[in-house]
Amino acid sequence: MAHNLNFDEKTGTYSFFSVQQKAWHGLGQIVQDYPTSSEAIQYAGLNYEIAKKANRHELPSGKTIVSDSSFFTYRTDNEMVLGSSVGKDYHIVQNHEAFAFFDAIVGGGEGILYETAGALGDGERIFITAKLPDYIRVGNGDDITEKYIFLTTSHDGSGSITAAFTPIRIVCQNTLNASLRSMTNTVRIRHTSGAKGRLESAHKVMGLANTLSSQLENIFNNWAKVKVTDSEVKKLIQLALCPNKETFDLIKKDAQDELSTVFKNTVDDAFSYAMLSESQQMDTTKGTLFGAYNAVTGYYQNVRNYKDSEAKLQSIVMGGTAQLKAQKAFELCTSFEKIGEDIFNYN
Rank of each mutant, 00 (worst) to 15 (best):
E9S: 10
T13N: 14
T13G: 04
T13F: 03
Y14G: 09
V19T: 15
V19F: 09
K22A: 15
H25S: 15
G28W: 08
G28A: 11
I30G: 09
S37G: 13
I41T: 08
N47A: 12
Y48H: 11
E49A: 05
A51G: 00
K52P: 01
R56S: 09
H57S: 07
L59P: 09
P60R: 04
P60F: 02
I65R: 00
D68S: 14
D68N: 15
S70V: 05
S70F: 01
F72T: 00
N78G: 01
G83H: 00
S84Q: 11
V86I: 05
G87F: 01
D89G: 03
A100P: 05
A100I: 03
A104N: 14
G109F: 05
L113H: 14
A117V: 08
A119L: 07
L120Q: 11
D122V: 01
E124F: 01
E124V: 01
I126V: 12
I126K: 02
F127L: 04
D134H: 03
D134K: 01
F150P: 03
S158R: 12
G159P: 01
R169I: 07
C172E: 08
C172M: 03
N174T: 14
A178F: 10
S182T: 15
N185W: 02
V187D: 09
V187I: 14
H191L: 07
G194W: 10
E200N: 11
A202G: 03
K204R: 13
V205P: 00
N210H: 06
S214A: 14
I219V: 15
I219H: 10
K227L: 07
D230H: 08
S231L: 11
E232V: 11
L241C: 08
L241E: 10
K245D: 15
K245Y: 08
T247C: 14
T247R: 08
D257Y: 01
V267M: 09
D268Y: 01
D269G: 06
Y273E: 02
A274Q: 13
M275Y: 00
Q280N: 06
Q281K: 15
D283S: 11
K286A: 14
G291Q: 09
V296M: 12
R304M: 12
Y306K: 04
K307Y: 06
G320A: 04
Q323G: 04
L324G: 07
L324P: 00
A326F: 02
A329M: 04
L332H: 08
C333M: 13
C333N: 10
S335K: 15
S335Y: 07
Y346G: 00
N347Q: 06
